[in-house]
Simulated scan of single mutants.
Amino acid sequence: MNNKAASVSFHNVTKVYGKDVVAVDNIDLVIEPGKLVTLLGPSGCGKTTTLRMIAGLEMATKGKISIGGTDVTRLPATDRDVSMVFQSYALFPHMTVIENVSYGLRFSGHPKGEIRGTALDGLGLVGLADFADRLPSELSGGQQQRVAVARALVLKPQVLLFDEPLSNLDAKLRRQVREEIREIQQNLGLTVVYVTHDQEEALAVSDTIVVMRNAAIAQIGTPRELYDAPADRFVADFIGEANLVDCIIKSVDGGMAEVDVAGYSYRLASRGLGVGSETMAVRPSRIVLNRTASDDGLAVTVTKATYVGSRMEYTLSTPVGQLFATLDDVYDAIEVGQQVTMQFADKGPVLLPD
């Protein structure tokens, strides 16, 4: 299946509904060809509206949208070389799997004699060639979602769009299907724009994540960049959960800051900040708990201990407020009410710029 992946760019794009409901507020964004970029954020942040403007299902109020270097701002959806995979699958229940996958080909000028072969190729890409003559009702939810992906793929779009594609699947299927989507995208070199509110899903599939908040872009970066160096409190808490801890920067030297957390000293990158009161983000997995009392750390009390299978989750009462920690050791759990020493891992905590 030939790939003609294209870039997508937004320049000062705004979308307003009615007189004053701003859904997307003056955003600039460049999506490189052949990359999977996820729009991530809470409900109402503008991510789905942004996706629909790429598809041509919504028109920008202001600004310019380009696909493959061509201005498509005013083009209807039918004139844009994009395909969209919806949350609801949107399969025709009375049509077989291959008829569903062939549907778009029949209306796109594809040679009639090649339609079935092309549709079978598409089903082969998602591992469903043997299911061609079944009805959607005879498939699992994960299989139906893969049919929807095949239907989009056979049109060989410049850009493939996914709108919350896994939200109707259970946890195990979500993991399986997201891996399949990522594998297909990488194997075919597709440009994919993917919308989700699930931060773990975004971290798992993306080359780049665009975190959105209040109709604007909060931060753009790779999954690791966003996890390890969030731009602010919102991104820190939204990507991977974080404890926000008040601290005092006592000194800065060579880009490294010496911070004080209720008497516990810790050294980390200053991120351009100077001496004074600041906030640091600490991932739950980057908290170290030691049963032995030590001056190098904070004395804290375990107020809640929860076993979740692969790890223990602890709620801690500390001099800097209630914190949340996770430990992999599920066999030697710390009991509720026990006092332990809390330290931060060598890597992980990060100062949050203003």
Rank of each mutant, 00 (worst) to 15 (best):
R182Q: 12
R182S: 15
S88N: 15
D253A: 14
G109A: 13
M53A: 05
V282F: 00
L125M: 13
Y307E: 08
S7T: 00
I54K: 09
A218H: 04
L160M: 12
R134I: 03
V275L: 04
E258K: 08
G141N: 09
S140P: 11
Y17H: 02
A119L: 05
E180F: 11
T14K: 07
Y314D: 00
D260S: 02
T301V: 02
V340C: 03
T318F: 11
D296V: 00
G127R: 05
L190M: 14
K347A: 01
M280T: 07
I65K: 10
K19A: 12
Q199H: 15
S88W: 00
V149E: 07
L155S: 15
G276T: 08
V252H: 05
F162T: 02
T50F: 03
N12W: 04
N168L: 11
V245H: 06
S43Y: 08
V159A: 05
A281L: 01
V8A: 03
F86I: 10
L153F: 00
F131C: 07
V149P: 04
D295G: 15
G276K: 02
G240F: 08
A216F: 10
E258F: 06
N26P: 07
A257L: 04
G142A: 09
T306E: 11
D329A: 13
I54R: 06
V85C: 03
D130M: 01
V288D: 11
T50D: 11
N100H: 13
M84D: 02
P349S: 01
A6F: 10
S294I: 03
V30A: 12
V126N: 00
K250T: 14
P42N: 03
A215C: 13
Q185F: 01
V22I: 12
N214H: 13
E200L: 09
A152Y: 00
T326H: 09
V177R: 07
R134W: 00
N100R: 12
A55F: 07
R80N: 06
V245F: 03
Y227D: 01
G309Y: 01
P157Q: 11
Q176E: 15
N100V: 10
I217V: 14
V72I: 14
D237P: 02
A171D: 04
A55P: 03
V177C: 06
P230G: 01
I287M: 13
A333D: 15
T49K: 00
V37Y: 05
E241Q: 14
A293F: 07
Q176H: 07
T306W: 10
K156D: 05
D121N: 12
L316Y: 13
Q143A: 05
G68L: 01
N2T: 14
G240H: 02
D207Q: 09
Q145D: 05
V308K: 09
I27R: 02
M59R: 12
S285N: 13
C247H: 04
